[in-house]
Write a protein that binds this DNA or RNA. Structure first.
Lengths: 236, 236
DNA sequence: ATACGATTTAAACGAACGTTTGAACAACAC
DNA sequence: GTGTTGTTCAAACGTTCGTTTAAATCGTAT
């Protein structure tokens, strides 16, 4: 038979094990033998089902990002169908709130996937960066343009900068690899075990992000690419 | 002879090459043969001069962090010697501004080290996290307590959270590994080639960080560990 | 029962990894 | 000169890596 078989859970077992191990030790730090060992399958199973280790990583993310991308676009479509363009806070809530909601839903990967995502976004391997660029392109472009519309007085370049800064704060927070945690002696509880980790995160992070986005603009000359040359002052 | 020799630059050549290559490809992604090849020295030189690859990474950082830690403590000492405790903005300027100033000074590593630092802070390897915890412990503790004093109405836990979030935004920004850059089509120019990259960074990032630090506190119950139970409202 | 495609298995592949070795080489002390 | 000490070098060490192979096994349709 060729399709629609009662697929044995080998594929899923591999994906689950890889998701957890990649999160714990990174891509290069996790060997195929560790993955297949943890999944309880034969070493050759990864190459049979996915083709290569790189393809496995891509599939680990595709499985989760499909939902994330769809949900983010759906929320934005919904907001933009309204009478007036959405406010910055609503845009951030849709973009980052959706992400953090994944942390509470185990069927979407839970905190394990959240931490994996945060850590992998900073992996230097070329194929990883290329993969994310492709996976994120549409969603990021849509949200970027929504922010342009919501903040008409802020130069586009500044908005892009702050979008990246928000993403950085978010990635770092959910990654929880913070080398400073041990230094400060304060556990920030973003562990995959805490059932309320995602709620804590959201309540903690969202005000910070909004505060950063709406901070006064920097002093120096703004490239006059747009309407008014907003000097120092509230960005929103 | 046993000391004060006319040390050949082998050690420094290795450190410089390792700094650049670790920045480009990460710790696990950079082989000893690549490092020694780029430095123009023999493969065995690393083990002879440093002992192991792990020890090499530690030395790459120790060489730069010595100055960074000293300067950060000096500025804090200076501020705290004054009549009244330093304001949050001054604390952040000392902590993050010092970091960014390294990016302009090639003798301190320049943008290459800045990017390396940003990327390595998220490496999952245990020995890396343990090393940073030790290197940062004193400085982070001092600055943390300075922020407690500067923001007496904000719960300690909230300050620690925002300190980590600022660090995340900063790390991500200086790392410049942003997978989203390719997606947004906007080059954020944090490349080691741009001589003004560090100034751009500082002007861009500092207002964002301050805005985040001073954002309204989250709604939910504040642990009554301190004086007044500040509900939602400006944090500073 | 037989045939066949899909999957699993044990074993091996060549390549690359970090590290070690022991000889060669340099600079200085006596 | 000889001896000593710090450094470089080519070569090899044993291990682990991702991947491939070919036989064995399973489930089902004929």
């Amino acid at each position: 038979m060729n399709e629609a078989r009662v697929v044995p859970d080998t594929r899923e077992r591999i994906l689950d094990a890889a998701e957890r191990l990649f999160m714990e030790s990174g891509y290069e730090g996790t060997s195929m033998r560790l993955i297949t060992g943890a999944a309880g399958v034969n070493l050759a199973a990864v190459n049979y089902h996915f083709g290569s280790k790189e393809a496995l990583l891509r599939e680990v993310f595709r499985r989760r990002l499909a939902w994330l991308n769809r949900e983010r676009l759906r929320l934005l479509d919904e907001m933009e169908a309204g009478a007036e363009p959405p406010k910055p806070s609503a845009i951030l809530e849709a973009f980052f709130g959706t992400l953090m909601r994944m942390g509470t839903d185990e069927s979407l990967g839970g905190m394990t996937f959240l931490r994996l995502l945060g850590r992998t976004l900073t992996e230097p391997a070329d194929f990883i960066r290329a993969f994310f660029a492709g996976e994120y392109a549409e969603v990021v472009d849509r949200y970027k343009r929504a922010l342009f519309r919501a903040l008409p007085d802020v130069p586009h370049e500044e908005i892009i900068w702050r979008f990246h800064l928000m993403l950085g704060a978010m990635s770092y927070a959910i990654a929880g690899t913070d080398a400073l945690q041990a230094a400060t002696g304060c556990e920030l509880r973003t562990s995959p075990d805490d059932p309320h980790a995602a709620e804590h995160l959201a309540a903690r992070v969202m005000p910070f992000l909004l505060g950063g986005l709406r901070a006064p603009l920097p002093q120096f000359a703004v490239p006059p690419e747009q309407q008014r040359t907003s000097g120092p002052g509230k960005a929103a």
